[in-house]
Design a binder for these strands. Structure first.
Ligand SMILES: [Zn+2]
Ligand SMILES: [Zn+2]
Ligand SMILES: [Zn+2]
Ligand SMILES: [Zn+2]
Lengths: 161, 161
DNA sequence: GTATGGCCTGATACACTGTATCATACTACA
DNA sequence: TGTAGTATGATACAGTGTATCAGGCCATAC
C-alpha cells in the first residue's frame, strides 16, 4: 500500500483493514476447503487488493519483481486462476483486469459497478438482478449458467464531487 | 456463406436472408445519418454476419485476404470501430469477438445469450432488465451509463437436442 | 480546374494479454 | 524413504489491440 493508492479509495476509508480482512477470510476459506493458499497466491491476492480498482495481470507481475526473482506470466495467471476458482477474485471482462471479492464465502456471480471517473469498482450482489436475468432469458428458451454484468457509470463519490 | 456454416444456425433458417437484411438496413441507416458505409466496412459487416457466432477480429482479417491485398490489423479494427459506433455490430467482451446487431435502428445496449454448446449468440433487448439494473445500481448511488450483460448457458436448440 | 482540407486506407512497428510445454521443486501420504 | 500429486520456474509463442506516419480519395471552395 502506497500513499498514492490511498486517496483513490471510495470513502477515504482504512483500506489496510479491507486488505487484512480479505486475506484473513481467504485463509479461513482455504483451510475449510483444503485448498492451499501458498505464499505466492497470498501475495497475488494482496496485490489484487492493493486498491478497489481492477488490476491487470502484468501489473501484478511487475510488482512481484522483488529484485531477485522475476516471475513469468504463467506464474501470475495460475495464481489468478486459483483465486478465481475459489471466488476470492473476479475477472472484469470488459477491462481484462482482476478485482478482489469481498464476500467470497458463497460462490457467486456478482454485478460490477465501474466508475469511469475514479476507476473504482464495487461489486453488487443482487439476487433480484440475477433472477430477472434468469427469468427473462428463460422466456426466450435460454437456460443461464453464468452471468457477466458490468455497468459503467458514475459512483456516488464522483457524482457528489 | 459456406454450407459448413449453415448447420450451426439456430433454427436451420435461411441465413442469407439475415445477411441481406442486415446489409440493407445498414445501407439505409448510414445514408440517413450521412455516414459512409464504404466497400471495406460493408465487407467487414458481411463477414461479421457470416454466422450467429461472434467473430474474432483476426478471423475477419484472414478472410479479407483475397490474394492480392493482405490488410493489416488496424484496417479491421477501424472498420469495426465504425460499425460499433453506429450500432451495427456489438463487441462481446467476454469473448473478444464481434457480433452483428439485428436491430441497429435505435442505439442500444443489448443483453447477450451465449450458448456454450453451439456457440450461437442471440441478443436480448429487454427493457425490464435494463431498468432493473439501472434501479438497483441507483439504490447504491451509482448512475449507470452503459451496460455489459453477457449470459452463458444453453440455447433452446441445444437444450432440446 | 486546381487547391485545400477532411476522411479513409495502407503499412510498419509495437504493446498488451494470455497460453503451451517442459523442467524442477515442493508436499502429502503410503 | 519412496512415490504420486501439486505448485512453481522458465522458455517460447499465440492472440488481441494500438500508435504512428504515409498515401489516396473525395468534396467543397476559390
Ligand atoms: Zn478498501
Ligand atoms: Zn468514482
Ligand atoms: Zn441468420
Ligand atoms: Zn446452442
Amino acid at each position: 500500500m502506497t500513499d498514492a493508492a490511498l486517496h483513490i479509495h471510495p470513502t477515504g476509508h482504512d483500506h489496510a483493514a479491507c486488505v487484512d480482512e480479505a486475506l484473513e477470510t481467504a485463509e479461513t476459506l482455504c483451510v475449510e476447503r483444503g485448498a492451499r493458499l501458498t505464499p505466492l497466491r497470498r501475495r497475488v491476492l494482496e496485490l489484487v487488493w492493493s486498491s478497489h480498482r481492477p488490476v491487470g495481470a502484468y501489473d501484478i507481475l511487475g510488482k512481484l519483481d522483488d529484485g531477485a526473482r522475476k516471475p513469468a506470466p504463467p506464474t501470475v495467471y495460475r495464481a489468478l486462476d486459483f483465486l478465481i476458482e475459489h471466488g476470492l477474485v473476479h475477472r472484469i471482462e470488459s477491462m481484462n483486469a482482476y478485482l478482489g471479492c469481498n464476500h467470497p464465502e458463497q460462490s457467486h456471480t456478482g454485478q460490477f459497478l465501474i466508475c469511469r471517473e475514479c476507476g473504482n469498482v464495487t461489486e453488487m450482489d443482487d439476487e433480484d438482478v440475477r433472477q430477472t436475468l434468469r427469468r427473462r432469458a428463460a422466456e426466450k428458451g435460454f437456460e443461464v449458467r453464468s452471468q457477466t454484468v458490468e455497468l459503467v457509470g458514475l459512483c456516488a463519490n464522483c457524482k457528489a464531487g
